[in-house]
Design a protein around this nucleic acid. Structure first.
Lengths: 171, 171
DNA sequence: GATAATACCTACTATAGTAATAGAGATTAA
DNA sequence: TTAATCTCTATTACTATAGTAGGTATTATC
């Protein structure tokens, strides 16, 4: 796995959106300014994140971007896979498993690659956007909290899709 | 970290040289044939490995390549760093540590990257060429053996630089 | 309904990295 | 001397990376 500059920008933008979650839609320009990112490049990244249904956008005046899910439910592994591809250092988990089965000569090598992938996946699957924007915590504590709370928290916060803002409240 | 095709070829070549260690210098053509690698591309890779003092070459007829160190002493991390750069998913360990100190806003993110790097380094530092060419072992066993024997084994085998083959024996 | 603010879309550029291939030159064992 | 090697320099084709530019569509607000 290699995280590109673009991947870094995606992660930083999403962290920013997570921090400003209560403020509704945030303009591209504000994200770019606060995170110090090239605005036009960021545009392309946000479209990609939108197509992957990780954020949603509002067009026109007062438009902008916001997260579609609670930060507790967005794993860092998901973001990296989306922007920069598989976590494995070579190929992806599936093809590595196939090679381990078929290529007897190099089995040990591919197994090693898979070990590295699994180690990365373990860390990145168990860390969410919420973990990254929280204050500093001991590593053990962070991972434990994610595992415990990641699924259950979203339902507690009354998170609604953007189209329902305002409308749902008076129906 | 990303292992390129070139990195894979390097690893496969070195595993092959490790397997044929007792046979002295091996021709590029034979490595390419046995490992099914593009010969001219392999040439360039071997020069790189030679410049890094990981293998040594003999020119002219009966020439070829061989390892300069015992397979027990060649860590996979070293090979990957050589050919494909740092193990970290973004930047390198040093610059990540610097960012963790300086960039307060993104500290948690860089710390995460460093965790991933450390996990990969732990695996790849503790696996050697010897481990990869040995028969299948349980993972725990492999790592334990490497840790125990990596340094002490080289001195037991009478490993001599290539220039000394034959000569030293009758001096 | 006009206007300004915003996201959206298409195209383009520049640079570097990847994965080779080609061929002539230098060195050495036999 | 010669054949077998490694060595060196160039070149090619393709893809990825990291942006920039500018017009188009949509929407809140007045």
């Amino acid at each position: 796995m290699k995280v590109s500059q673009k991947g870094l920008y995606a992660l930083q933008s999403l962290m920013m959106l997570a921090r400003h979650r209560e403020q509704g839609a945030i303009r591209i320009r504000d994200i770019a300014y606060e995170e110090n990112l090239p605005e036009k490049f960021l545009e392309l990244i946000l479209v990609e994140l939108k197509n992957a249904r990780m954020v949603e956008s509002a067009r026109g005046a007062k438009g902008g971007y916001q997260l579609r899910r609670a930060p507790e439910d967005i794993r860092i592994s998901e973001i990296i896979r989306l922007v920069d591809g598989p976590l494995a250092p070579f190929g992806d988990a599936e093809s590595l498993r196939a090679l381990i089965d078929r290529d007897v000569e190099h089995r040990a090598l591919y197994q090693l690659f898979l070990e590295v992938r699994d180690a990365a996946a373990k860390i990145l699957d168990n860390t969410t956007l919420a973990d990254l924007i929280a204050g500093p915590l001991r590593r053990g504590a962070r991972i434990k909290r994610t595992r415990k709370r990641s699924s259950e928290k979203a339902s507690e916060l009354g998170v609604l899709p953007m189209g329902m803002r305002g409308k749902a409240s008076h129906e």
